[in-house]
Design a protein around this nucleic acid. Structure first.
Lengths: 120, 120
DNA sequence: TTATATTGCAACCAGGAGGTTGCCTATGCA
DNA sequence: TGCATAGGCAACCTCCTGGTTGCAATATAA
């Protein structure tokens, strides 16, 4: 929980360690990519071939999805010998959570204002 | 996206009040749409014209974005006289939060397993 | 009733997303 | 050394997305 990505991520830090919320949501907005993310949150880092196994898609298709997730910061990968190991990085997800939390909070406040207005 | 139009429409329960997580994330994966959502979480329901004001985009473009958000369940809209009022619906966002929470939890558990494994 | 404002609908367009295939390089192993 | 495995690159295809414009329909206001 001691995360440093600014909780109010609306300021657009140029050196953003984490891409803007919309980019993270876009990366998560695909079943195939969500499946990859779930695989990597539940288990150890895996190679592209391993991630391709069990999928109907070609290795290249999976590679493209992995790159989308990488650009969003959700995954990191390092070349290890002849294979490329992909690992989950929790920071962008935490940023996305913070974003949704702020949305919910705004909504709750709007509801409160409406309620007290009606009660007058 | 593999499963685009519901060619296999038996994929999710008919009374799903909330579309699958990926659909919600996809809807939120666009700056313009995030801006619309923020506007409607902070304020009262607004018409399409009102939502278009202050944007560089045409009314039709905004309309299309609104429909994307509607399909994801994030917005609801009702015709009121000659204008269409759009309002925020918190359910899909809450579902998305729950999804991210479960991801985080899985990740934490994976870390714990790794830790206790290393310590042995 | 006649304007004016608010939408919806349809056509159209450019570009990007998702997917495949073929080929090449690099690494590990017998 | 030679071969199988892992992955990168590039070309190509199709369809969706995000945007525009023009026009018709409806509802309000004067």
């Amino acid at each position: 929980m001691p995360q440093r990505p600014s909780r109010t991520a609306a300021k657009r830090p140029v050196h953003a360690s984490v891409p803007p919320a919309a980019a993270v949501f876009a990366a998560l907005g695909d079943e195939t990519r969500l499946t990859l993310v779930r695989k990597l949150t539940t288990g150890p880092p895996r190679s592209i071939s391993q991630l391709t196994q069990g999928s109907k898609l070609s290795r290249q298709a999976i590679t493209k999805h992995i790159r989308v997730l990488q650009r969003a910061g959700v995954l990191r990968s390092i070349r290890q010998g002849r294979e490329t190991l992909c690992a989950f990085d929790p920071k962008p997800i935490q940023a996305a959570q913070a974003y949704l939390d702020s949305l919910s909070e705004q909504w709750d406040q709007a509801l409160s204002r409406l309620k007290s207005f009606v009660e007058d």
